[in-house]
């Protein structure tokens, strides 16, 4: 396959950045999208050019490190798939592919396609945990959890923190990410004591980071590689309103 790649290049946070086109041939349909970029980078190095920086680590769809907005869609065209698991057979010979970083004020570009997602860590710091110091735990079987609650909590807990929800949201909102943690902990008995305090603190932090608000468009869920359910956002809303009523 022969492709034209239009890639966002930005030397560092201070640089303005621009789209640059690259031609690439000999792309095998069996390559993953990131392997295709590896091939491009190997060539750029030998040509004495700066290779394209992009985040990646596990390359099996679970660490949440890879990103990339591909032709306007975070993680590209395949549903419920991270960029690292997207394969080139989803593209056609001669395609022009636009590759951009996550775009959000809360995710400043570090270099090329790499952004800083530490805002997510700070949202978790604000309250995304159960305060259970090591050693203080009661016997694990002491608290039964209804299977359905456990399953729903699990569905929310599968969030990989990649930030595709923010990238896709027309408002660059971090609601799905925040709501996934609120829902995971809020559905379990262990999460109850801090439940309402948690939602207030996490939402405040989310706003302070400069994310936009949620307008319920559902774009986040549509691109989420783990399919975090849209209802998590409503559960967050319910908890916040309950907390606000005192």
């Amino acid at each position: 396959m022969k492709l034209t790649l239009k890639i966002w290049r930005q030397k560092n946070a201070a640089d303005e950045g621009r789209m640059v086109s690259y031609e690439i041939d000999d792309v095998s349909p069996d390559m993953s999208f990131l392997e295709m970029l590896d091939v491009l980078n190997e060539r750029l190095i030998l040509d004495g050019e700066d290779p394209v920086a992009f985040d990646h680590d596990c390359r099996e769809g679970i660490c949440g490190m890879c990103s990339l907005v591909i032709d306007g869609t975070p993680h590209g065209p395949e549903k419920a798939t991270t960029t690292c698991q997207l394969h080139m057979r989803k593209f056609k010979d001669g395609d022009v592919i636009t590759i951009e970083p996550w775009r959000a004020r809360a995710f400043p570009v570090v270099k090329d396609l790499v952004v800083d997602r530490s805002a997510f860590d700070r949202i978790i710091q604000a309250g995304g945990y159960v305060s259970a110091p090591t050693g203080s735990a009661p016997e694990a079987a002491a608290i039964p959890v209804p299977k359905e609650d456990a399953n729903k909590a699990f569905d929310a807990a599968t969030c990989i923190g990649c930030g595709a929800c923010v990238a896709a949201c027309p408002n660059a909102s971090a609601m799905l990410f925040t709501a996934a943690k609120i829902t995971h902990l809020g559905l379990l008995p262990q999460g109850q004591p801090e439940r309402y305090d948690r939602v207030v603190k996490m939402v405040d932090q989310m706003d302070a980071e400069g994310f936009g608000g949620c307008t319920n468009t559902g774009e986040c869920t549509a691109v989420c590689p783990k399919g975090i359910p849209f209802e998590t956002i409503s559960r967050l809303n319910a908890d916040l309103l309950k907390a606000s009523r005192g």
């Binding site: 050693g135 735990a137 694990a140 039964p144 456990a150």
Partner: peptide, 15 residues
């Protein structure tokens, strides 16, 4: 420890 932290381990129908 992990259960106390809210790790959603698989559960049977009795919870």
């Amino acid at each position: 420890q992990c259960v106390a932290q809210g790790v959603p381990f698989a559960r049977d129908y009795g919870g």
